[in-house]
Design a protein around this nucleic acid. Sequence first.
DNA 1: TCTGGGGTCCTAGGACCC
DNA 2: TCTGGGGTCCTAGGACCC
Length: 430
Amino acid sequence: VGRSADLPRTAGTYDGDDTGCPMLHVDMDAFYASVEIKRRPELRNRPVVVGGGHRGVVAAASYEARKYGIRSAMPMSQALRRCPHAVVLPPDRAAYSAASEHVMRILRDVTPLVQPLSLDEAFLDVSAAVRQQGRPGAIAAAIRAQVAGELGLTCSVGVAPTKFVAKLASARCKPDGLLVVPATQVLDFLHPLPVTALWGVGARTAEALHRLGLRTVADLAATPVDTLRRAVGNAGAEHLSALAHGLDPRSVEPDEVEKSISADRTLDTDLVLEQDVRRELLRLAEEVGTRVRARGFVARTVGIKIRFADFRTITRVRTLPTWTASTGEIYRTAAELYRGLGLDQPRVRLVGVKCENLRDATAAPEQLSLDLDRSEPAGGTDSPRNRADRAVDAARLRFGAAAVTPASLVRRGPQDDASRVSSADRHRPR
DNA sequence: TCTGGGGTCCTAGGACCC
DNA sequence: TCTGGGGTCCTAGGACCC
């Protein structure tokens, strides 16, 4: 087991034992914050927090900011209480996506077996690459050097026989580290760790395990699966028990397709009026519909999510008779689901729209409608509705997202307040 | 200025079918 | 004439991850 500190920064080699370690987990360090610091060098060595907004949380914190106890997902108000002089930056998704694509290109140059988990991390299976490019440890060191050289960003890489040990290893050597866990040392590495270190053990599962007196991975390994079943359910028990014994059959899946596409928005102030909620639903349906079409999908299930002021959250979904990618149909379904709730004076904090049951729009329909009047399914790619959506998509691509907006989303700007537009007027959909 | 936004997976109950 | 058994689909909620 070695640490990056032992290696020169530009090292292309790693000399430790990496026998039976085809799995790499590459994880960028404080990714969003690091991208921001990279393009604004004056921020180096300052506590930088990405995130915010009126009711925002921390999306990423630089290591300097972490010294104050600032963590991802922490409410921004709390973060600023811990470190009032932190530099707070709004997220710039486009910049992070661009950096992410660059990193993924570097990884795909090593092997096509790359499975991105998010913008800032990925698994690689290098078993086929070793013949050309050397041992896994050397490949990992080369990746780190190339990422640093081309992007000026650091990442940490875990190298292990299985995916989940590789992931634990990268977490263990952060930031700017490299950690190899050879097959012979997997259990030694694993067993002292707290159960919370395992991927999939969050607050609730940890609590259930603690009630059984299980605190370390070694405790978990020594517990019969049936005992675990009662605490964490069937699938969870099998999974955890296997992990505790160092077993993880999951392979790197480079071509995972999305199973759902969703958008939700926490409002600056809670909504009460149905017309205001519907306007948000329309905005979100536009967003989701555009993304569904851009990916070449059609969806059969449309859902909404509503979070109330007291944080209680409900979801409703409806499976449609046919597939669709139409903004209008997504919106109508969402609005009907909302109306179906029969809410009286709700205080709505968050509104969300989701499409699931996705499939390729070009795939042959599973079952044609037997109703001759509707011989053209809603998801048909040539319906007038979809031609209109596609025209909107094209205009947006060319002129920007704001080029086309549903009439009811057009509101007068704040400057109109000065010209004494009544509030009722401002809220009337036009 | 308490608690984002994008996802995946699992469970449990009910409808429905053979 | 006191209640099968298996399978699939659908829905709601919740845990979890980054």
